[in-house]
Amino acid sequence: MKRRAWPLIGILAFGYAFLYVPILLLILYSFNESRLVTVWSGFSFKWYGALLHNHQLLDAAWLSIRIAATNATVAMVMGTLAANALVRHGRFRGRTGFELLLTAPLVMPDVIIGLSLLLLFVAMQQLIGWPTGRGFTTITIAHVTFSMAYVAVVVRSRLGQMDASLEEAAMDLGARPLGVYMRITLPLIAPALLSGWLLAFTLSLDDLVIASFVSGPGATTLPMVVYSSVRMGVSPQINALATLIVAVVALAVVIAGISLGRKPGR
């Protein structure tokens, strides 16, 4: 068995290298003095300095973070409701349609979601005068529509694995269903809610295509700024931005790892 495993470990190592070498190179070259990728002209923080003075990019980042946080919160609620429906309400009428609508956004190409939502917003504006413009609200609605499905997947599996006896005990002791849900169920599925929230936040922060369709003048998100500067070619400021994002993600993972590790019984 041991000897047979070697080719497998080789493929695994290749796979991880394939996934990580591009990111590591980005980080490395964010500290390069030169603009060129091929020339290493010395260690420098100058691209980080340039990044901090790039107001267009910073404004876009702030808008993106606000959209991502709003989206994550709404998507968390919607996704949890949908997961409740699927796990707790069994075979309700229209369940197949419900599941279809919920899974379709997971694989639907972004261009289709973006185009169709834009056309909806335009039609709604003509008919009822809302939304009046396109920007924060329309982007957030679009993001909730596709990210609630991801939350539903995460929460659904947690709800399905949950031990029902605690809820039953609370019911037997006379607690109301809503009280049971708030005080027993929600704390038990809290880790899933948190990972769903973070997932929705990341998906929103990452989206270029859908936001480009449903955004209007004056509302430029971070991916749009990154996209327009990347189209011009390699830009060391984007490397610096990538490094910062990786640093934040790595920090979050370390914190999550420590807090999970500290939990008793794990």
Binding site: P22, I23, L25, V37, L205, D206, P223, A242
Partner: peptide
């Protein structure tokens, strides 16, 4: 969890 757009961009430099 890191940006998809930036990961695609990394390949331009490579």
């Amino acid at each position: 969890w890191t940006s998809f757009l930036i990961r695609v961009y990394a390949w331009i430099g490579i």
